[in-house]
Structure formats: C-alpha cells, structure tokens
Design a protein around this nucleic acid. Structure first.
Lengths: 209, 209
DNA sequence: CATATCTTGCACACAGGTGTGCAAGATCGA
DNA sequence: TCGATCTTGCACACCTGTGTGCAAGATATG
C-alpha cells in the first residue's frame, strides 16, 4: 500500500507557486481587492493556472497572511526588554519594521475577516502588551484603564500610524518613531517621558537589528 | 415661463424618502455593505421604488453621510474651550455622543471613498485639533510632532475607540471617557495629567449637554 | 370621483467576480 | 526521447449586485 505519490512536483511548478504568493503580496498591497486575474497576471500566469496551486482565492490570501503573521511573530520573539515601557517601544519598532512594506495589505487583512485567521499567530503581541500594561501599572503607570484596554489602545495607535502612512507616506525612520511615540502615549506616558525614554535608548530607532 | 412643477410631491412619497434614509441608517449600521434590496425592505418598500427617490445607491448613502456630518459639525460649534487640552477633551466627548449610535457606518464611511464627501463638513474638527495641538505646544505641550500629525493621532485614537467599541460594546459613559483619555494621550498628556484634567472638569463627562 | 402620482413585480442588460471541465499545447525530467 | 506534469484558452455555470423599461395596480389629493 505505498501511498500514491506519483512523483515530486516539478521544479517550475513550485517556483510558480511561490511566484503567485509573491505577486499576491505585491499586488494586494497596491489594491487589496485585486482580482485573482490580476494576481495571476502579476505572476506571469493565467488565472486558470492558479487553481492548480490553490483551491480558491481565499486559500491563497490566507496562506499569505499566515506567512506574514508567522514572520512578525518570529521577529518579536527576538526582541524583549525588562522595562515595560521600553518593551512597548521595542515591540512597536520591530513590528513596524516587519509590516511597513506591506502596509496596505496589512490594514485590510486586519480590518477584515482574515483577522481571526492570523489572530493566533499575532496573539503573542497582544499578550506581551497586556503584560506590559499590567506591569507598568504596578510600577506607577496607568491604572485608570484595564491592561486589556491599554493594550488595545496601543495596537490601535499602531494601526492609526499605519493608515496615516498610507495617505501621506512616511520614511521608515519617521514611521518607527511615530509608531513608538503613539504607543507610549497610549501607555500613559507624557510626551516628555516618551522622549526621554527614546533618548536613553537611542539604539531603539537605529538601523541595525 | 412658469417652471413646470406639476404639483407638490405626495405626502406619502416624502415620508417614504425619509423612511429610506432612516432604514439605511439602521441597516448600514449593522452591515455597512448591505444591498439596496435590504435597505428598501427595511423601509417597507421594493428595491424598484428606491429609484423613484434616488438616482443611485451611492446617492442615497452620500446624502445620509452628509446629513450625519452636518449634524456633527453643528454639534461641535456649540462647544468650545479656551484651554487646548480641555478643548480636545470637549471635542472628543461631543463627537462621540453624536457618533456613538452609528459607529459601524461611521467607521466604514470614514475609511471608504465617501470620506472626501464628508471631509468638508468635518474639516472644522480637524482644524480645531490642529489649532489646539499648536497652542498646546506653545504652552509647554508636545513639540516633538507637528500639530498636523498630533491632530491625526488624536483622530486616529478616536477611531480606535470606535472600532474597539464594535468588538466589545462600551457603555455610552465608558465610551466617552475612553475617547477623551485616548485623545489626551495622543496630545501628549500623561495619564495622570489627563485624569486631573477630567477631575477639574467633572462636567465634561456628565449626561447633560 | 378623476387623475396625477407613487409603488410593484417582472424582465432584462450589464458588470465583475469565482470556480470547473476539457482539449491542446508547452515544458520539465528521468 | 518520451511521458508525466504543468499551463493555457476557451466555454460554461453561477453568484451578487446595480440600474432601466414597462404595464398594472394602489393611493393620495384636488
């Protein structure tokens, strides 16, 4: 009873599959409602060929979203800070760097029904933020709102910067700074405190990784 | 050359027109992409009849959006404060009260192509926020971001509360408080400063007008 | 009541999209 | 080279939605 796996997929086939995901990333980022036709053409394939790789349009987009979410999740694990405020800032910077070049798609995916699909992969971010907000409260920080609410506000602030950067483009550096400042504001820091934190940790906005 | 106006519109006709707008408000607020069919049914009319009152679906929605925008614009003119931070808080409260019961529709209209259509009517809000941010900066407030950017962050914070309240409903009072706190945070106040401001102006969150 | 006005229900054209079947051709790979 | 694998192009069914034409019926209103 050898499983009927007639042969390994042809090399060009797997290449085309990747090309489709790549084209989807590029095209959906310009028009998040682009048709399957447009995506296929972007990959140099016909619409019909797509169905040889993905059973449906949604499957394609979902896989794309999950890959992105996994990438972000992996990135945040490599960056942690003791101080809650610093951790929030760090999270902002890291996530921004991962997402900045796929802003438009990110925005629609997060606002749309695929949100749940990537929720699992992005859960860790939320968890970290809640924990940071709670610890900050214990150390003299915001106690007028629940940690859960504070976390949502921080996430929302990040999305605000995201949406804002779609209307008037931001340099990578300005985006980083803005997303961090907005997040710290939601955490309850005054603008001076946020600025001082950034001054004390200048590396936070630097180009390295 | 008397204009050929054969007669005034029948009373039930104007009633139906209002009923359509009313149904649109109600239904688009539950499903912002609801079809014209659903809206017509909600008004107790047939889809066909809608075209006797509005030349297109978009016309209907646009009129609805413009009415709402005008309502909000009128409301903010009735509330002004000298202190910039207080003015931001006041704006937050007033706008929230006007918008809270049409959150879902507001969200999609503001994120969608109708944004420009109501931009004119909502421009005053943006203008007030920019002026507040500028004056705040002159009085020891945030100078690390341009007034324009600060205004955008405040608006974004309000939308965050809006979106958030769609996932886990907020009481009118909690919504007010949250939208004000989030706005003041974006303005650069620490959570304590924001709290003190609210304490000094307890009437801000009260039920009256 | 008589009539202009409104509403209805149907059919239709149109647009844009997804997903499938199938034959013919291109292309990898052993 | 030769066969399995992929791609293509076409046709097709299907869906959901908008907007229009038209005849027939309902209803306000002078």
């Amino acid at each position: 009873m050898t499983a009927d796996r007639p042969r390994a997929p042809r090399r060009d086939a797997t290449e085309n599959r990747e090309a489709l995901l790549e084209a989807a990333r590029r095209i959906l980022n310009e028009d998040p409602e682009a048709s399957l036709d447009a995506i296929a053409a972007g990959a140099g394939l016909s619409r019909r060929a797509v169905y040889g790789h993905f059973p449906s349009r949604n499957t394609l987009v979902a896989e794309l979203a999950e890959r992105g979410a996994a990438r972000v999740a992996a990135a945040i694990e490599r960056a942690t800070a003791e101080d809650p405020a610093l951790d929030v800032a760090l999270l902002g910077r890291v996530v921004w760097d991962e997402v900045e070049h796929v802003r438009a798609m990110t925005s629609t995916i997060v606002h749309g029904p695929l949100r749940e699909r990537i929720g699992a992969a992005l859960g860790p971010i939320h968890g970290r933020l809640v924990a940071d907000a709670r610890r900050a409260g214990e150390q003299g920080g915001r106690t007028d709102l629940s940690p859960e609410t504070v976390a949502r506000l921080i996430e929302g602030a990040a999305f605000t910067v995201l949406d804002e950067s779609l209307r008037s483009p931001l340099s990578r550096r300005d985006g980083r700074r803005l997303v961090v400042l907005a997040g710290l504001g939601a955490l309850g820091l005054s603008w001076r405190e946020a600025g001082e934190l950034l001054d004390r940790n200048a590396a936070l906005l630097m180009e390295d990784r």
